[in-house]
């Protein structure tokens, strides 16, 4: 046997592996964060395509973990810059800490923040007691629709993911919406070899989903890897509860959890078997709640 520490080290970047020969022993060391780099590369490619192909594009920032990761990815794509307006639809029922976090991060990162609100519906007293789906449609879908009309946006970048729930699993990276905001999920454009639908009939607008291929666990692993500042509501509080998905205060419930750091959340998610959006009341309104909401323009 060789007296040295090892016989040889062969680094093979193509396979992302290092082979260490030690006597008749072979060790392979793998770079475990490689899958995050793949996810990041794909999202950056999509963000750059979107920015190049569409004028009047905005990014929807819900303040949650996904869209905050998306803003971070935009900074990766545009080398520290975010050359797009960030739209936040404020239903007025958001958890107050979200607004504080939003304004602080927007300032720190130099973001161009645009806040949209359906004031008319709020003046008329819209709230979840009138029906959760009705309320979501008025305050979120219509709030978004009027913000888009006001600013003349023809495209919107959203941080939805396929693994969130069934209808989102059916989405495309570049997904057209007709002039009534409707999603024709039965007749969607093909997407192959990263060639996306970028030309449209008059009146259509586009939704772009750069995080479609990420999972909830991926998002947290990436937050850990990149040290992205995430709102405290996701971390376990004194009562042993944390939010797993953020929304309006009346319709969003925290889960029982002791996870108070990003590392602990990553560990928790590796062993969890409940759905991410189980704390979101509107999803449970009826069997096809999300399909109905999303076909009419919900995020």
């Amino acid at each position: 046997m060789n007296d040295g520490l090892y016989d040889s080290i062969i680094f093979n970047p193509a396979a992302r592996q290092t082979t260490v020969l030690f006597g008749r022993w072979i060790f392979w060391i793998y770079i475990s964060m490689e899958h995050l780099a793949d996810l990041e590369n794909q999202s950056v490619f999509i963000l750059r395509e979107a920015y190049k192909k569409f004028k009047n594009l905005a990014m929807l920032w819900s303040i949650g973990k996904d869209s905050t990761v998306m803003v971070w990815l935009a900074r990766k794509a545009f080398l520290g810059h975010v050359p797009l307006p960030l739209v936040h639809i404020d239903t007025s029922y958001k958890i107050p800490a979200m607004i504080e976090y939003r304004d602080r991060v927007a300032k720190e990162w130099g973001l161009n923040l645009v806040v949209g609100q359906n004031k008319k519906a709020l003046d008329e007293g819209m709230n979840h007691e009138k029906g959760r789906i009705v309320c979501c449609e008025a305050l979120k879908t219509q709030g978004l629709q009027s913000a888009m009309e006001e600013h003349n946006y023809t495209g919107l970048i959203l941080g939805i993911r396929r693994d969130e729930e069934g209808t989102r699993a059916k989405e495309r990276y570049f997904s057209p919406r007709d002039k009534n905001f409707e999603w024709n999920f039965k007749d969607q454009p093909p997407e192959l070899w990263d060639q996306f639908k970028t030309t449209f009939a008059e009146g259509t607008h586009i939704r772009i989903h750069p995080l479609l291929h990420w999972t909830e666990l991926n998002i947290w692993e990436y937050i850990l890897h990149e040290k992205i500042p995430i709102i405290d509501l996701y971390f376990s509080n004194k009562e042993g509860k944390r939010y797993r998905s953020l929304g309006c205060a009346p319709c969003t419930a925290p889960i029982e959890s002791q996870a108070s750091t990003v590392e602990e959340i990553v560990e928790e998610l590796k062993n969890i078997d409940t759905a991410e959006r189980s704390g979101r009341a509107q999803d449970q309104e009826d069997t096809y709640a999300m399909q109905k909401l999303r076909a009419r323009g919900y995020m």
């Binding site: 454009p189 093909p190 070899w193 060639q195 639908k197 030309t199 009939a201």
Partner: peptide
């Protein structure tokens, strides 16, 4: 490559 007919990707 893909081929686009009018607005739609129609061939690969």
């Amino acid at each position: 490559f893909v081929l686009v007919d009018e607005f739609d990707v129609c061939g690969g």
